[in-house]
Amino acid sequence: MKKVKYIALVLVIMLAMVGGAYAAWTDTVVVDGRASTGNMKVVFTEADLSAGGTYEVIDNAYVTDGGQKLVVRMSKLYPRNDFLEDAEDEDYAYIWFQFKNVGTVPVVFDSATAVAAAGNQFPNINRLKFGDPSFTATLGEIPGALSVWSDAQGPILPGEDKRIKLHVWLDKDAPNSYQNLTAAFEVKVNWKQANMQ
Protein backbone atom coordinates (compact mmCIF):
# COMPACT_ATOMS: atom_id res chain seq x y z
CA MET A 1 0.00 0.00 0.00
CA LYS A 2 2.87 2.32 0.82
CA LYS A 3 4.46 1.57 -2.54
CA VAL A 4 1.31 2.46 -4.36
CA LYS A 5 1.12 5.77 -2.55
CA TYR A 6 4.75 6.50 -3.38
CA ILE A 7 4.24 5.76 -7.09
CA ALA A 8 1.14 7.91 -7.13
CA LEU A 9 3.05 10.78 -5.57
CA VAL A 10 5.82 10.52 -8.14
CA LEU A 11 3.30 10.49 -10.95
CA VAL A 12 1.63 13.58 -9.60
CA ILE A 13 4.96 15.44 -9.38
CA MET A 14 5.93 14.39 -12.90
CA LEU A 15 2.62 15.48 -14.32
CA ALA A 16 2.97 18.80 -12.55
CA MET A 17 6.40 19.31 -14.12
CA VAL A 18 5.03 18.48 -17.57
CA GLY A 19 2.33 21.01 -16.99
CA GLY A 20 4.91 23.62 -16.02
CA ALA A 21 6.94 23.16 -19.20
CA TYR A 22 3.86 23.35 -21.33
CA ALA A 23 2.86 26.54 -19.60
CA ALA A 24 5.88 28.38 -21.07
CA TRP A 25 4.13 30.21 -23.86
CA THR A 26 5.99 30.91 -27.06
CA ASP A 27 5.47 32.77 -30.27
CA THR A 28 7.35 32.81 -33.55
CA VAL A 29 7.85 35.32 -36.33
CA VAL A 30 9.45 34.45 -39.65
CA VAL A 31 11.34 36.60 -42.14
CA ASP A 32 11.90 35.59 -45.75
CA GLY A 33 14.86 37.35 -47.32
CA ARG A 34 16.19 37.66 -50.83
CA ALA A 35 19.28 39.43 -52.17
CA SER A 36 20.10 39.69 -55.85
CA THR A 37 23.41 40.82 -57.25
CA GLY A 38 23.93 43.18 -60.15
CA ASN A 39 26.30 42.81 -63.08
CA MET A 40 29.04 44.86 -64.65
CA LYS A 41 29.60 45.05 -68.38
CA VAL A 42 30.79 47.74 -70.73
CA VAL A 43 31.01 47.15 -74.47
CA PHE A 44 32.17 49.00 -77.56
CA THR A 45 29.04 49.56 -79.57
CA GLU A 46 30.33 51.37 -82.66
CA ALA A 47 33.55 52.40 -84.35
CA ASP A 48 34.36 54.19 -87.59
CA LEU A 49 36.95 56.20 -89.47
CA SER A 50 36.66 59.41 -91.39
CA ALA A 51 38.90 62.07 -92.86
CA GLY A 52 38.97 65.82 -93.10
CA GLY A 53 40.55 68.31 -95.49
CA THR A 54 42.74 66.70 -98.14
CA TYR A 55 42.93 63.41 -96.28
CA GLU A 56 41.37 60.38 -97.86
CA VAL A 57 42.02 57.70 -95.41
CA ILE A 58 41.54 54.86 -95.17
CA ASP A 59 40.56 51.41 -94.12
CA ASN A 60 38.23 50.26 -91.43
CA ALA A 61 37.49 50.10 -87.75
CA TYR A 62 35.29 47.49 -86.15
CA VAL A 63 34.24 46.01 -82.84
CA THR A 64 34.87 42.36 -82.08
CA ASP A 65 34.93 39.85 -79.22
CA GLY A 66 31.39 40.61 -78.17
CA GLY A 67 32.10 44.29 -77.85
CA GLN A 68 35.25 43.83 -75.81
CA LYS A 69 37.82 44.78 -78.44
CA LEU A 70 38.22 47.59 -80.96
CA VAL A 71 40.32 46.84 -84.06
CA VAL A 72 41.49 49.59 -86.42
CA ARG A 73 43.31 49.46 -89.75
CA MET A 74 44.44 52.71 -91.36
CA SER A 75 46.15 53.49 -94.66
CA LYS A 76 47.23 56.57 -96.61
CA LEU A 77 48.46 58.42 -93.58
CA TYR A 78 51.32 60.90 -93.94
CA PRO A 79 53.45 62.91 -91.55
CA ARG A 80 52.24 66.17 -90.16
CA ASN A 81 52.64 68.41 -87.15
CA ASP A 82 51.23 67.39 -83.83
CA PHE A 83 47.64 68.28 -83.32
CA LEU A 84 48.28 70.89 -80.67
CA GLU A 85 50.53 72.85 -82.99
CA ASP A 86 47.89 73.50 -85.61
CA ALA A 87 44.57 72.59 -84.09
CA GLU A 88 42.63 74.63 -86.63
CA ASP A 89 43.88 72.52 -89.50
CA GLU A 90 41.31 69.94 -90.56
CA ASP A 91 43.69 67.75 -92.54
CA TYR A 92 43.43 64.77 -90.25
CA ALA A 93 42.14 61.28 -90.18
CA TYR A 94 39.61 60.70 -87.47
CA ILE A 95 38.73 57.67 -85.48
CA TRP A 96 35.68 57.63 -83.32
CA PHE A 97 34.26 54.93 -81.17
CA GLN A 98 31.43 54.56 -78.77
CA PHE A 99 31.00 52.37 -75.74
CA LYS A 100 28.08 51.74 -73.44
CA ASN A 101 27.57 50.58 -69.89
CA VAL A 102 25.15 47.70 -70.44
CA GLY A 103 25.45 46.45 -66.85
CA THR A 104 23.61 47.53 -63.73
CA VAL A 105 26.53 49.03 -61.86
CA PRO A 106 28.19 52.45 -62.35
CA VAL A 107 31.73 52.05 -63.70
CA VAL A 108 34.92 53.97 -64.23
CA PHE A 109 37.97 53.28 -66.34
CA ASP A 110 40.43 50.87 -64.80
CA SER A 111 43.11 50.08 -67.38
CA ALA A 112 43.62 49.53 -71.11
CA THR A 113 45.92 47.95 -73.63
CA ALA A 114 46.62 49.46 -77.05
CA VAL A 115 48.95 47.37 -79.20
CA ALA A 116 49.71 46.53 -82.80
CA ALA A 117 47.24 44.11 -84.37
CA ALA A 118 47.44 41.48 -87.09
CA GLY A 119 48.20 43.11 -90.43
CA ASN A 120 50.18 45.99 -89.01
CA GLN A 121 53.06 47.07 -91.29
CA PHE A 122 54.45 49.94 -89.26
CA PRO A 123 57.95 49.16 -87.97
CA ASN A 124 57.09 51.19 -84.90
CA ILE A 125 53.38 51.46 -84.19
CA ASN A 126 54.10 54.40 -81.91
CA ARG A 127 54.74 56.55 -84.97
CA LEU A 128 50.99 56.70 -85.02
CA LYS A 129 49.75 59.67 -83.03
CA PHE A 130 46.40 60.60 -81.57
CA GLY A 131 45.02 63.75 -80.09
CA ASP A 132 42.19 66.04 -79.29
CA PRO A 133 42.27 69.59 -77.95
CA SER A 134 43.42 68.34 -74.55
CA PHE A 135 46.20 65.88 -75.32
CA THR A 136 48.57 64.31 -77.80
CA ALA A 137 49.61 60.70 -77.42
CA THR A 138 51.25 57.79 -79.16
CA LEU A 139 49.35 54.52 -79.33
CA GLY A 140 51.25 53.28 -76.28
CA GLU A 141 50.14 56.36 -74.38
CA ILE A 142 46.46 55.85 -75.15
CA PRO A 143 45.72 53.97 -71.87
CA GLY A 144 47.06 56.89 -69.86
CA ALA A 145 45.08 59.33 -71.94
CA LEU A 146 41.90 57.30 -71.38
CA SER A 147 42.55 57.37 -67.65
CA VAL A 148 42.79 61.16 -67.68
CA TRP A 149 39.65 61.32 -69.79
CA SER A 150 37.79 59.04 -67.36
CA ASP A 151 38.79 61.09 -64.34
CA ALA A 152 37.32 64.14 -66.01
CA GLN A 153 34.15 62.31 -67.04
CA GLY A 154 33.29 60.64 -63.77
CA PRO A 155 31.36 57.38 -63.53
CA ILE A 156 29.55 55.96 -66.51
CA LEU A 157 26.13 55.05 -65.25
CA PRO A 158 24.08 52.02 -66.25
CA GLY A 159 22.61 52.54 -69.69
CA GLU A 160 24.84 55.50 -70.43
CA ASP A 161 27.02 55.60 -73.53
CA LYS A 162 30.04 57.72 -74.38
CA ARG A 163 31.48 58.72 -77.71
CA ILE A 164 35.12 59.56 -78.24
CA LYS A 165 36.54 61.13 -81.40
CA LEU A 166 40.28 61.37 -81.91
CA HIS A 167 42.45 62.96 -84.54
CA VAL A 168 44.98 60.54 -85.98
CA TRP A 169 48.15 61.30 -87.91
CA LEU A 170 51.61 60.03 -88.65
CA ASP A 171 54.44 61.43 -86.57
CA LYS A 172 56.16 64.32 -88.36
CA ASP A 173 59.52 62.58 -87.99
CA ALA A 174 58.41 59.33 -89.60
CA PRO A 175 60.96 58.40 -92.31
CA ASN A 176 60.26 57.49 -95.94
CA SER A 177 60.16 53.84 -95.03
CA TYR A 178 56.64 54.43 -93.65
CA GLN A 179 55.25 55.18 -97.10
CA ASN A 180 52.54 52.85 -98.40
CA LEU A 181 52.15 51.03 -95.14
CA THR A 182 49.06 50.05 -93.21
CA ALA A 183 48.84 50.59 -89.47
CA ALA A 184 46.72 48.14 -87.53
CA PHE A 185 46.11 48.21 -83.83
CA GLU A 186 43.64 47.02 -81.25
CA VAL A 187 42.38 48.51 -78.02
CA LYS A 188 40.94 46.76 -74.99
CA VAL A 189 39.61 48.65 -72.01
CA ASN A 190 39.06 47.27 -68.52
CA TRP A 191 36.47 48.86 -66.30
CA LYS A 192 35.85 48.69 -62.61
CA GLN A 193 33.02 49.56 -60.25
CA ALA A 194 32.84 53.26 -59.66
CA ASN A 195 32.58 52.76 -55.89
CA MET A 196 35.87 50.87 -55.65
CA GLN A 197 38.27 53.57 -56.78
Binding site: V30, V31, G33, A35, S36, T37, G38, N39
Partner: peptide
Protein backbone atom coordinates in the same frame (compact mmCIF):
# COMPACT_ATOMS: atom_id res chain seq x y z
CA UNK B 1 32.26 36.28 -59.06
CA UNK B 2 28.56 36.12 -58.39
CA UNK B 3 27.14 38.57 -60.88
CA UNK B 4 23.44 38.13 -61.71
CA UNK B 5 22.93 35.73 -58.84
CA UNK B 6 20.46 35.61 -56.00
CA UNK B 7 20.16 34.09 -52.58
CA UNK B 8 17.11 33.22 -50.51
CA UNK B 9 16.84 32.57 -46.82
CA UNK B 10 14.37 32.26 -43.99
CA UNK B 11 15.11 33.74 -40.61
CA UNK B 12 12.99 32.56 -37.68
CA UNK B 13 12.71 34.30 -34.32
CA UNK B 14 11.28 32.27 -31.45
CA UNK B 15 10.08 34.19 -28.41
CA UNK B 16 9.16 32.95 -24.94
CA UNK B 17 7.96 34.26 -21.60
CA UNK B 18 10.65 36.23 -19.85
CA UNK B 19 10.28 34.23 -16.62
CA UNK B 20 10.82 30.77 -18.05
Amino acid sequence: EGQNEKIDFTLTYNWKQWNM
